[in-house]
């Protein structure tokens, strides 16, 4: 009814404003949290600390971008943390075997993509619910990483490798932050401007309608989980680089942080809606909160409680806003 009475106009400003407004909510939240820590601590609002937050958050950001794709299709990927470990240790082994940094990284990331594609196959071709399929992969992946390494850290990696996970550009900007920004822009473009991106939204909004409109549901699903696997693989390689050591226990529990970041950032758990920008803001809300509470000497257990509260409050605010 509102449609009939409102003025018909085909301006392009409508969506843009609304989109900004939606993002504004979580961004305002981020600013408020930042402001509080700036006032209550001496060290929060310093270049050094902010770059540390950015560095620590970059990894979760990348995983959250992966999770955003998956959750928009109304799926979920519990295996990102485990795939990350598989890619990390494979990269480590290849480096030790002398394959060189670029090739080792590439293979490791592709293995991550393959693990993701297997998730997608199980979901689309075997009809297994995403929660179950990726729960299985979460266990398989962790197991594989442990088998490969015998549960021992792989150390003695080339020193140049560190650059990917902890190096600086222009003496102060961490490489992972740059990687994160490039990936974010690329994947935001794919999500919004390509046919694949449109299919991702259509699949999440109404799978039956999408199928009957000729969307290749199987390939889209596999694609989405493969994207998730690739990004997990990338993070696995970056984490190994940062420690100059690959470990089977890397990324334990990261999937939950990544999912939380997406949800705080406004990705709909029902599928069909979400933005990369929102997700990044969501990840930073969590990152800033952890960092600030650390500076305030709040112990880790209380931090867990705070993060949990934020997730619920963020989703609740989002719900109120939609009404």
């Amino acid at each position: 009814m509102s449609v009939e009475t409102s003025k018909i106009s085909f301006g392009k400003s409508g969506l843009f404003n609304k989109k900004i407004f939606n993002e504004l909510g979580s961004f305002t939240g981020l600013l408020i949290i930042g402001l509080v820590f700036s006032i209550t601590t001496d060290n929060f609002f310093t270049m050094n600390n902010l770059l540390t937050v950015a560095l620590q958050t970059a990894y979760i950001c990348l995983l959250a971008i992966a999770e955003t794709y998956v959750i928009i299709t109304s799926g979920i990927d519990l295996s990102v943390g485990s795939i990350l470990a598989v890619s990390g240790v494979i990269c480590g082994k290849l480096l030790l075997a002398g394959f060189g940094i670029p090739l080792s990284m590439l293979v490791a990331i592709l293995v991550g993509g393959l693990c993701g594609a297997i998730n997608g196959l199980a979901i689309s071709k075997m009809g297994i619910a995403p929660f179950i399929a990726t729960l299985g992969m979460m266990s398989i992946g962790r197991g594989v990483a442990n088998v490969i390494t015998d549960s021992l850290p792989i150390s003695g990696l080339p020193e140049d490798f560190f650059f990917i996970g902890g190096g600086m550009v222009l003496e102060s900007i961490p490489v992972p932050v740059i990687i994160m920004l490039v990936v974010a822009i690329l994947f935001a473009f794919i999500l919004n401007r390509t046919a694949f991106g449109k299919y991702v939204f259509a699949l999440g909004s109404n799978e039956d309608a999408a199928r009957l409109s000729g969307v290749n549901i199987g390939m889209t699903t596999i694609g989405v989980y493969a994207v998730s696997g690739l990004l997990s693989g990338l993070v696995g390689v970056m984490l190994a680089a940062r420690l100059v050591s690959a470990q089977a226990q890397a990324g334990l529990g990261y999937e939950l942080d990544a999912i939380a970041a997406s949800i705080i950032g406004g990705v709909s758990p029902m599928g069909g809606a979400g933005t990369i920008l929102g997700t990044i803001i969501g990840a930073f809300i969590m990152g800033v909160l952890r960092n600030g509470l650390n500076l305030l000497n709040v112990n880790a257990f209380w931090q867990q409680i705070a993060i949990g509260v934020v997730i619920i409050v963020a989703v609740y605010i989002d719900k109120l806003r939609r009404k």
């Binding site: 449109k198 259509a202 909004s205 109404n206 039956d208 009957l212």
Partner: peptide, 26 residues
Amino acid sequence: DGLALGLSVEDNIILANLMNVCKFGI
């Protein structure tokens, strides 16, 4: 199974015809 209700009018109209609206997938 007819409409993706949460998506825009435009996205629904071009959904079955995306390949002809795209160049190199964009």
